[in-house]
Amino acid sequence: MFSDFAFGIFQESIEKYHLLDRVDQPRENPYPAGDISHLLYLKNWIDTVQWHYEDLIRDPGIDPVAALELKRKIDASNQERTDLVEYIDSYFLDKYRDVSVLPSASINTESPAWAIDRLSILALKIYHMREEAERQDASEEHRRACTEKLSVLLEQKKDLSAAIDQLLDDIAGGKKYMKVYKQMKMYNDAELNPVLREKRN
């Protein structure tokens, strides 16, 4: 199943990141460029770094200048994440380009890559919730609450994985068809963001 394949790569990326556990560590991808494995690993690596950016920026004692710099990094990371989701959807568009779409075929509410994006974030939630559930310096009450939350996350993983695999099967069988819209994020575009446009002029 594709969802198991993807989740395994996400786990590999998360575990590799946490060997050093630094947002500024070198980005190393063990998979060949152009391969779907490369895209999935890179996607989760970006998500993992951004997860920790989000932790850092919530430090109530953070220096305002450092916070602004970090916010810029988060914005850039969001843009890269969106671009990569679109690359992954391009992979699926190419993979299924010769499928004969049935007359009764319908479109899905989200593309395969955006569902896989949610699976990548879910992998991070599971990793960190498991850490909390096993944290020995936390109270028994804390560990118990986190164990219950982890159980819910694992159930969510099962459901989301099944939905992703069903969607891909339906696309492969012509029961669903892909129609991908670019996200068209406006806040990074100097032509579309009025603040950036004003500063440029």
Rank of each mutant, 00 (worst) to 15 (best):
A67G: 13
S13R: 08
D63P: 04
L119A: 13
A76M: 08
V65L: 14
G34I: 14
L20F: 09
D21T: 02
L39S: 09
I14G: 00
Q50N: 09
L42C: 09
W45T: 11
L56R: 13
V23Q: 03
S106Q: 14
P30I: 01
F92W: 15
R97I: 11
T48N: 12
A76Q: 10
R27W: 11
R22N: 09
V65M: 13
I36W: 00
R81I: 07
D24M: 05
A76P: 09
N29V: 03
E86Y: 05
L39Y: 15
Y96V: 06
E15R: 14
S100I: 10
L119E: 02
A66C: 02
A123M: 08
P112N: 08
E15M: 03
T82H: 06
L19C: 01
L19G: 00
I121H: 12
N44V: 04
L84Y: 01
A76V: 03
N108I: 03
R27I: 07
S104W: 06
A33N: 10
E80Q: 11
R97P: 02
I88A: 13
P103N: 08
L93S: 13
F92R: 08
K71Q: 12
P32L: 12
H52A: 02
S111Y: 02
T82F: 08
N29R: 05
E110Q: 10
A66Q: 12
N29Y: 14
S100N: 11
A76G: 06
N44R: 08
K71G: 11
F92A: 07
L42Y: 10
V99I: 11
R81V: 01
V23E: 00
L20S: 13
Y87C: 07
K43Y: 13
L84G: 11
I46G: 00
H18L: 03
Y41G: 04
N108W: 15
S77V: 05
D89G: 02
S106F: 15
P103L: 11
G34E: 11
A115Q: 15
L42V: 08
R97S: 15
T82R: 09
Y41N: 06
L20W: 04
S104C: 04
Q25C: 00
S106I: 14
Y91L: 03
S111N: 10
A115V: 10
I116C: 14
S13T: 09
Y17G: 00
P64W: 07
E110I: 09
I62A: 01
T109K: 14
D55Q: 13
I88P: 00
N44G: 04
Y96M: 09
L68W: 14
L122G: 01
V85T: 13
N29P: 08
D63T: 03
D83A: 11
D55I: 14
L122D: 02
L122Q: 01
